[in-house]
């Protein structure tokens, strides 16, 4: 699911050349991608562009977007998303994020931009609720080869069986860059930002948390705790979806996003 080419548009944010996608008309959705990077071919993106303007950057280190030594955390990445909201003068924005991108959306929303109207968090990461330091919140996927990660993420595509020697070089490069950035920001603390607990009270916009009931990375207890941690959130369970609900059940995720945003769906 790595996209085979650069996204069509370029912009400079935080001094970095960032590629992004910006298509469709209607209310604005900012989509923050998962650790597999942005992909306009995803059914979810195709569905959302029918009724909405969808802006989807490749965050620093993903796709061909530049990164820099000052990008070390998801919090750091979220400032680039904040820059994008301002640079494109986006207003009344529904921020949708998947997995790592959902974590980024929460980090972004703690900056309390008046441009953000609501959040949809598709299987978010980023908070740790366990208090025993010897207890894992998530299985340690970094103990496995990247080809095996898909087994944690997707209920419909349990293994990554791409034949890397035969794919286009740009796809392999985008995959290698994305994996590197995912490890850089996710390694330690593992897939969470301890400071976020002290900041989530600032996320006052209406928030919909989606959880795939086949998620092998974060369980139902985690999703419930996440909803409870946010001031104004509700949970919707996506049946049959894994951690990458956007991949496993794109229609259900699209429909949940549009319902929550109050967008009319004619399809």
């Amino acid at each position: 699911m790595y996209y085979p080419a650069a996204l069509p548009k370029q912009i400079t944010l935080s001094g970095l050349n960032i590629e992004y996608f910006d298509e469709g008309t209607g209310p604005v959705i900012l989509y923050l991608h998962s650790n597999e990077g942005p992909n306009p071919d995803l059914a979810l993106i195709q569905a959302l562009t029918k009724t909405n303007r969808v802006v989807m950057p490749a965050m620093p280190g993903f796709g061909t977007s530049e990164t820099a030594s000052f990008i070390k955390t998801v919090d750091d990445l979220s400032y680039v998303a904040l820059d994008l909201l301002e640079a494109l003068d986006l207003n009344d924005v529904t921020v949708v994020g998947s997995s790592l991108g959902a974590w980024m959306a929460v980090e972004l929303a703690t900056k309390a931009s008046p441009r953000i109207a609501r959040l949809v968090l598709d299987n978010p990461l980023g908070l740790r609720f366990k208090t025993d330091p010897t207890e894992k919140q998530f299985p340690d996927i970094y103990q496995d080869l990247p080809a095996q990660w898909a087994g944690y993420f997707s209920a419909s595509q349990p293994m990554d069986d791409r034949d890397w020697p035969s794919v286009e070089r740009d796809i392999a490069l985008r995959a290698a860059r994305g994996r590197e950035m995912f490890v850089k920001v996710g390694w330690s603390p593992y897939l969470n930002n301890p400071k976020l607990h002290g900041r989530v009270h600032r996320v006052t916009v209406p928030t919909l948390v989606l959880w795939g009931d086949q998620d092998k990375l974060a369980n139902r207890e985690y999703a419930d705790a996440y909803v409870a941690a946010l001031p104004n959130a509700e949970l919707k369970v996506i049946a049959g979806a894994g951690h990458f609900a956007f991949l496993d059940k794109p229609e259900a995720v699209a429909s949940a996003v549009l319902d929550f945003a109050g967008t009319k769906q004619n399809a």
Partner: peptide, 23 residues
């Protein structure tokens, strides 16, 4: 563990791209 030999980022992404594409 195979994953412990070269976790992503241990080698630079350019080198990892070469490795991914080498049969």
């Amino acid at each position: 563990r195979p994953a412990h030999v070269n976790p992503p980022g241990y080698s630079h992404h350019q080198a990892n791209t070469e490795m991914m594409q080498t049969p």
